[in-house]
Design a binder for these strands. Sequence first.
DNA 1: CTCTCTACCTAGTCATCACTAGGTTAGTGA
DNA 2: TCACTAACCTAGTGATGACTAGGTAGAGAG
Lengths: 207, 207
Amino acid sequence: MPTPTPTRRTRRTRRPPEARADEIVQTARRLFATRGFRGTTVAAVAADVGITDAGLLHHFPTKNALLKAVLDHHTQVGADQIRAILAPQGLDGIRGLAAWGEVMESQPHLLGFEIALSSEAIEPASDLHEFFTARYTVLRRWLMRTFQQGVDAGEIRPDVDPAHETSCFVALLDGLRLQWFFADGGVPIADRVRTYVDQLVARIEVP
Amino acid sequence: MPTPTPTRRTRRTRRPPEARADEIVQTARRLFATRGFRGTTVAAVAADVGITDAGLLHHFPTKNALLKAVLDHHTQVGADQIRAILAPQGLDGIRGLAAWGEVMESQPHLLGFEIALSSEAIEPASDLHEFFTARYTVLRRWLMRTFQQGVDAGEIRPDVDPAHETSCFVALLDGLRLQWFFADGGVPIADRVRTYVDQLVARIEVP
DNA sequence: CTCTCTACCTAGTCATCACTAGGTTAGTGA
DNA sequence: TCACTAACCTAGTGATGACTAGGTAGAGAG
């Protein structure tokens, strides 16, 4: 038995930096989603991409820089989705929320990502805290505006409280996300959201 | 300058093992709530108690043993609360859920605990995953039974789906917990829960 | 073909942290 | 008062993981 695991010395596949950086961010997002930020090692991300940890740190100088890039990417994607769903105004916008559950179900890794990171974002000092705070603020502002449009247009009862409805709907989404992971047998997120929105519309629309 | 930091050699305060173990579990729960399990070191818990890490490991042989003790304690306390709130049967049990928000608001450290640990519970292998799964199962079973009692007693409309209402209520609680930490200015959890339950009761009760 | 630039590697360093071996002293019971 | 148990301590060990210094080779420019 000669050399143990010869491993075909240095089969390097060199890639343009931008493409490699994208690949790293995608992989990191996937691993963060299952093991969290602290629970994911730089080496693990690098191995999944097919390079070494030192190789990865050539693209992102520190682990925190990688986190920042992942959060930026995530924010970008999330904002696009929010915009798409909340494009219609007023009550139609609210009706459109029924589709949100399907969006969530189609991207389970995305669900894990936010759960995994939310815990590490509790201490107010962290980058993560800022990220989550910003995300909530944006989402709530969009939703509240949509409710308010409906009220102003006379489609929604004037006694409906946009702040309350917004809080509850966002809470529903976050809570269902958790159940997706922990309830045995799985929770039909899309069904739950659709039914909730149906009941919501029935309750708030002007007859 | 002789000895640096003399630190009053060995001011040992020795305590009976049971009292010390309790103290350690309480402290660990508090630290887990802000930094998570991975983010909390054994030494940090020990220092907060006033002993060394080795001293702590005399009471709990490994960090995982400590986690298990904390989870057991948490489960005990949580189960007592669930039982107390869901003591009334049927529609009255549902009406009683309005008080849940106040219970949550009165124990913010308890909120953090579950958020902090839920993220590390995503991977199905961990002790934590089992803990959360069990917790959800118990809570859902209690709630579904209460809804079903109401339907059977003719207090709740027969077309109400207990599984759906249960999912949504639990999701609301979990989601509000998150908002408690991330929404600027804070979310009035108790108000949100009470209003939600009022609307729920109005929607499902037989006229 | 050669030159150069840089993506990537090898081989470390250093800090952190769970855990251990063995000593020390505070209480407790006789 | 005198052991004796055990709740602590000191001082490690080894594993892990972020990050670094300096070398190597792939690929486009000329």
